[in-house]
Each structure stands twice: as structure tokens, then as C-alpha cells.
């Protein structure tokens, strides 16, 4: 197992996975934060606004991001058609587990990059609101859980089709659907029940913050909302299920 993990780690050296993660985190933060706050009111709820918008942005960016990450992890095997050879040279279970562990490590790095970026934004724009560490941890945990589901689902697609076009195409479609459902849920709560039925939109119900429009003061008010631990557990369960399915698919691959 350790040898498989070392082999996978060596493959990352010339792949610049870090740059890819930086791209995903940078895109999400750029969209989530947008321009600089232009009023004292906005500075006073700077972190809360990001905690609210970032899950919506995740719904748009992460399906494509996870498709890209998964495609990247399997890139060498796909391009040079060496997966079948590797299945005969090393334990298939270890091979798949090493890829999965590396993917999870990448998700951790992604969450770390987002946390650092978020804190840097707070410093840069001098938010006057104190950072709620609990909200930050919940945002990262919820995001990582859904990203892990997406990663496991894309791994299955990769094993089935072996083509990055399918992964990226499905990722783009999921991004579009996720973002639209998030917007619909946002404008009238009309898609809210649908969000629970579509796992790649779970970023939104897992959000720790909601927004209400104060028409009298003409400003957005951000309020904490109950944390859905059951949905987080469901995400982790689904991720485990998809991973086991992927492992089974690898075990049954013909060479």
C-alpha cells in the first residue's frame, strides 16, 4: 500500500497538481468575494457574506474542478494506456486506494488554500467583523464532503469511459445545473427540496449561513442557519459507497 502511494506521489511531481488546486481555489475565491467592499456595512459583515456566497460558488466551480482533478490523477494511465499494465503489476486494491488517498489529500490542500485565501482577503480588505472559526470549519468540512462525493463519482466515470471529455462535459453540465438550482433556491426557495435530491448541489443546504434582504434598510442581512449534520453524514456515506463501487469496478476490470 505504502509503495503504491509512493508511486502515485512520484507521478504528481511533473503534473503540477498544486497549480491546479490553486486555480480551483483562486477561481472560487475570486467569484465568492468579487470586488472590494465599498461601505462600512459591507466590511462589518465581510466574513458572513463570504460564508454565504462561497457555497453557491462551490456549486458552480467544484463539479468542473473535481472533474479536472480526477482527470488529472488518471491522466498518465489514460494517455499512455498503462492502467491495464499496472493492474497486472501491482495490487489493484492498493492502486485504487493510493489514487483515492491522493485525491483526498488534494481535497485537504484545496480546503487549506481556501482557508488561507479567505483569511488573506479579510486582512486585505480589513473586515471589521470578527472571524467565526466555527463557521469557517463548517464551511470547509461541508465543502470537502461534497467535493469528495463528486471526486468519487468522477472516478467511477473515469473508470467506465476513460475519457477526459466525458468527465469535463459532465462536470460542466453539473456546474450549470448546480448553479442554476442554487440561484432558483436563492430567488424564491422554489428549488430548495430539489437541492436535497441532487448531491452535487449539497454545498447549499450544507451552508452555515443564510441571507435575508432588509428592504427598509436596503441591505443584505446574514444570519447563521442550523448545521445539517445528517446531510454531512449522508455525504460521507455516499462518498464511501461510491468509493467501494469504484474499488469493485477496478477489481473486475479485464486486462
Amino acid at each position: 500500500m505504502l509503495r503504491s502511494l509512493c508511486a502515485e506521489w512520484r507521478k504528481t511531481r511533473r503534473r503540477f497538481d498544486g497549480l491546479l488546486l490553486l486555480l480551483v481555489a483562486g477561481t472560487a475565491l475570486l467569484m465568492g468575494v468579487g470586488g472590494a467592499p465599498d461601505s462600512l456595512q459591507e466590511l462589518a459583515c465581510g466574513y458572513s457574506a463570504i460564508f454565504y456566497t462561497l457555497p453557491i460558488v462551490h456549486g458552480l466551480v467544484m463539479p468542473v474542478g473535481m472533474a479536472a482533478l480526477c482527470s488529472r490523477l488518471w491522466d498518465e494511465e489514460t494517455r499512455s494506456n498503462t492502467a491495464k499494465l499496472l493492474f497486472t503489476l501491482q495490487s489493484r486494491g492498493d492502486f485504487f486506494a493510493a489514487k483515492t488517498l491522493l485525491g483526498l489529500f488534494d481535497l485537504l490542500v484545496l480546503a487549506g488554500l481556501e482557508a488561507v485565501g479567505l483569511l488573506a482577503m479579510g486582512r486585505l480588505y480589513a473586515f471589521t467583523e470578527a472571524l467565526d472559526v466555527g463557521q469557517l470549519v463548517w464551511l470547509l468540512a461541508g465543502g470537502m464532503a461534497v467535493e469528495a462525493v463528486l471526486f468519487a463519482a468522477f472516478t467511477l466515470l473515469q473508470l467506465r469511459f476513460g475519457s477526459p471529455v466525458v468527465l469535463l462535459g459532465v462536470g460542466l453540465g453539473c456546474s450549470m445545473c448546480g448553479f442554476f438550482l442554487a440561484m432558483l433556491a436563492d430567488i424564491g426557495g422554489m428549488a430548495a427540496p430539489v437541492l436535497y435530491a441532487v448531491p452535487f448541489t449539497w454545498f447549499l443546504p450544507l451552508s452555515g449561513m443564510r441571507m435575508e434582504w432588509d428592504a427598509a434598510a436596503r441591505r443584505a442581512v446574514y444570519l447563521p442557519q442550523p448545521r445539517q449534520y445528517a446531510l454531512l453524514a449522508a455525504a460521507l456515506g455516499l462518498c464511501l459507497l461510491l468509493t467501494l463501487w469504484g474499488r469493485h469496478a477496478v477489481a473486475g476490470k479485464e486486462v
Partner: peptide
């Protein structure tokens, strides 16, 4: 050489 990174760059470019 990778298929995915340029697609991600395009998403960032759009933003």
C-alpha cells in the same frame, strides 16, 4: 499535455 487544466483556466478566464 493534460486535458483538464486549460478548461479550468478558461473558467477562471471567464470570471
Amino acid at each position: 499535455r493534460g486535458f483538464a487544466p486549460p478548461v479550468l483556466l478558461a473558467l477562471l478566464g471567464g470570471v
